[in-house]
Amino acid sequence: MLRLLTFFSTYRNTILFLFLEAVALYLIISYPGSQRRKVGDWLMERTISYYEKKHSITEYFSLQAANEELKAENVELRQKLKFAQDQIFGMASEAEKDSISNIVVDEMPLSKDYEYITAKVIKYSTSKLYNYLVINKGSNEGVQVDMGVVSPVGVAGRIIRVSPEYSLALSALNVDFKLILKAVNQEGKEEEFNIGFFEWRGESARYAHLTYIPETVKLDTGYQVITSGSSQIFPPDYLVGKISDLGEKKDGYYDARIEFATDFNSLSNVYLIKPRNKAIIDSMEQNLRR
């Protein structure tokens, strides 16, 4: 017994060291574990409110750029709307034309398929391998896990955790962020393929990779890369970026480098996208799995 006590007293520093390291390792390994989710959520609410205060101060410095971006998006949407109206007008019969020209933009119904929630990114990082976005809306505002996050110009991330007031999203700058993409050339959609997988490898905040493109698919630099819509997260044809470089062919496949449309170094205004029929599709999938 005495020996045991002397052992502990001589090695007490080492024992304390090993014990604390073991606790830290446990925290690291069990991080995705559910038992600590509650503590994590509680902490998230506390620490994020600090970042929200910081954001409310630093926001003023980037207000002008964010405003310009939103204005540019507005102009583009108005042009697209006009184009769509003209298309419909051209196709309509004489009898229908009257009623169509009477539709005022403000009274137009909202999209039946997707619901958009505007939100702000209050914290983001770009320098890690696993980057996240902290968003200022949570389950109180209807945010759910697996909603897509898009900036006014392109894809930005995906919601992975929701607390009442905030939510946490996987940034597209995260090596775990996966997406199926297709490419179209600039003129239109003559060449459209479900071509490859989105992959970010951590080396740059401006570029990502498009991997496993079959050799038979001929792509060129400048082609736009858009979402395929094969997942429930993003609607189809949402811009991700454009191809800036083509890689070597290997085993019948090749890679391409994508330049992001979204500027991750000044991310502020984002939209969260939710398919309106998500609940139905989810329950269908669960039934199928059973």
């Binding site: 390291e21 925290l27 600590r36 696993y130 980057n131």
Partner: peptide, 26 residues
């Protein structure tokens, strides 16, 4: 000093994206 280091690392961890992970503490 061990306890201070562990506590400080954990505090920084709390403010990082993976709230409550122990990377800095370790």
């Amino acid at each position: 000093t061990y306890l201070i280091a562990f506590g400080m690392g954990l505090t920084i961890d709390m403010f990082s994206d993976h709230a409550a992970s122990g990377v800095h503490a370790f």
